[in-house]
Computed example of a mutant assay.
Amino acid sequence: MSMRLRERVDERLGDPIWWNDVLQLAKTVLAAVAAWVVASSVLDVPQPFLAPWAALLVVHATVYRTFSKGTQQVAATVVAVLLATAVGETLGLSTTAITVLLVVALVLGSVPWLGAEATTIATTGLVVLTTGFDDDVMLISRLYDTAIGVGVGLLVNVIVWPPLRRRTAAQALDRIDDGIGELLLDMAAGLRDAAPDEDVAAWIDRTRDLDEDLDQAWALVRVAQESARMNPRRSARPMKNPKEWLGLLRRMEQAVAETRSLARTLGGQQAHRATWGEAFAVPWISMLRDTGQAASDADPAALLDVRRRLEEFSEDLRSTDRSPEWPIYGALIINLRNIVDAMGEVADANPIGGNRLPIRIPQRRA
């Protein structure tokens, strides 16, 4: 195995989010197989195909969604069984019966209470209609199958390591603060080399990308919060009201907005380094670079040091400099100060995502 492939495999093996997805997949398979075994071998239900089908429907990414969304899907399955039986008893198994079934199923699926489960009603109804609807015993059997699958799916998802989406959201937050730090470092490097307007436009576009990452992180935190509801795990309690994470997201939103404002100021006609003078450009660009490095390293002490240097620098300029570029100086200093303050709180909270799992491919001894 090549070194690069080994590193990629080791990275995946040590990723707790990947293992969380693997566990969820295994639980889904376990629920479906267990429902089949219970229905076919233990309870001896004839044609027990609806049991694993219902189990698959109710195993969701969170326990809360298992109950809320699963209830809608189970209701849709029951409606489909009853609809298929009624259509079959009235029209038999024919093209007309299938057409009527699909039309009615899609209409019922648009009812808000069923949660837009049109596909579930249609597919389940088709299976029931084409595999048997002859008598009341068969109808009861179909509903019995569904109940078995629902019960097994709920038990598996709640009892077997109930999902907690904390690490997924934490990784998203970690990725954003790294992205902010990398952008600040690139801006500092570009300014040292007299960045052209194309670089400034690229910096602004990267802040928009960070905004998209923030939107995704907000969504993931909400999923993590939902995953803590009705979750019996002790580690789920702090996630029921993740005030700290919500505060960090707001701070990173502020840092991204300030970085965009800073980039727009740098792109102005009066903001080129040649017009600043080296007395301002050299120390300010150095502090911008150190801010990016401290944000990437999640180093609150380094950010605090930049804050101190920035205050001293501002005081020195106020007492000695009479440059006409003062409006630009003030805007750049305020933007950088706000970024430092926002990222300082983020750095204090690190590490957000916890440690990687100590799982690696065994090394072959010589």
Results as ranks from 00 to 15, higher is better:
I180N: 13
I180G: 10
I180H: 08
E182N: 06
L184H: 00
D186T: 10
M187Y: 07
A188L: 05
L191V: 02
R192D: 03
P196F: 01
D199Q: 06
D199M: 02
A201V: 12
A202D: 12
R208L: 12
R208E: 15
D209P: 07
E212C: 05
D213Y: 09
D215A: 14
Q216S: 13
Q216C: 10
Q216I: 11
L220W: 09
L220T: 08
V223H: 03
V223L: 14
A224V: 03
Q225F: 00
R229P: 00
M230I: 03
P232G: 09
S235H: 06
P242N: 09
P242H: 11
E244K: 15
W245T: 15
L246M: 14
R250Q: 13
R250S: 12
M252H: 12
E258M: 10
E258K: 09
T259L: 02
R260S: 11
A263W: 09
T265M: 13
G267P: 10
Q270S: 12
R273P: 00
T275P: 00
W276I: 03
F280I: 03
P283A: 04
W284L: 11
W284P: 00
S286F: 04
S286T: 10
L288D: 02
R289H: 11
D290I: 02
G292I: 07
Q293C: 02
S296K: 05
D299A: 04
A302E: 10
L304R: 13
R307T: 08
R309W: 07
L310D: 07
E311S: 15
F313S: 13
S314I: 05
L317F: 15
R318D: 14
T320P: 07
D321Q: 11
